[in-house]
Design a protein around this nucleic acid. Structure first.
Lengths: 131, 131
DNA sequence: ACTAGTGTATTATGCGCGTAATACACTTTG
DNA sequence: CAAAGTGTATTACGCGCATAATACACTAGT
């Protein structure tokens, strides 16, 4: 797993975000085991407690579940999984629209820009990682 | 002047952002005086140094200029002013596309969502104030 | 049983950065 | 000249967050 960190947001938030994206893309299947706290911490070179915080957050949101002391797993509630995708999308749309609304941009021009950018930007990283 | 602050971003960044939006909307004319550091700080109930930091940032970006010790003014370089709008828009588009690209959303569905949200959301505040 | 692996919880520490508190230089005006 | 207004610079403070150090309960494998 590779997570590209920025400096603005807390690391544990970025970890949660990463998992949500993975879920949204269907890369994580229901019931699938996730890395242990210590292992993921080792991989990402961050503190185990930071991972724990991320996992705790995910558990509270029902994204993962933990039985006894076995490795945590992705929830089997497919509704939850599907909702993650919707939430990410709607959140992005909402942020975007709110952002451009304050500048009064014609919607047509906007859609054109989005479409062009969407097609043209294949794998460019960074861009406006706002940092 | 009214600025709605959120807790995530530094206040001085939000102040800069606010000025950029004003410029993008054509609310600020070339050569127009801006509030003094202390006055704006008083209005927004923030520290003068925070405003100073915002103004310093804006000056470095060529948005305002300061002669001697007279009040800072909006730049008379109209190219710069126009570019602000473009930058804000492109930045928003870029952030948005980058965000949804990592989830693999069909572009058609995306455009529809944006359009609908754009028309439907007249003056709703908050939404995804990401907080 | 012992070891090493899970998850979980608590408390303390350190640091970066945004903010705050001052001080300074200058100009204008009364 | 004094007072009040500019912009600017320097230093100090405080807080959020990541890190760190343990400790505990439990399980699986040897």
């Amino acid at each position: 797993m590779i997570v590209k960190f920025n400096n603005r947001d807390p690391v544990y938030v970025q970890v949660v975000r990463h998992f949500k994206e993975q879920i949204a893309r269907g890369m994580l299947e229901p019931g699938q085991e996730v890395s242990s706290r210590r292992e993921l911490a080792s991989q990402l070179k961050i503190n185990p407690n930071t991972v724990q915080r991320a996992y705790k957050e995910m558990e509270e949101q029902g994204l993962i579940y933990t039985e006894k002391n076995s490795p945590s797993k992705i929830t089997r509630d497919e509704d939850v999984l599907h909702r993650v995708r919707e939430e990410l999308i709607l959140e992005a749309v909402d942020t975007f629209v709110t952002s451009v609304r304050s500048i009064n941009v014609p919607v047509d021009e906007l859609l054109e820009l989005v479409k062009e950018k969407y097609d043209h930007q294949s794998d460019e990283e960074g861009g406006s990682a706002h940092d």
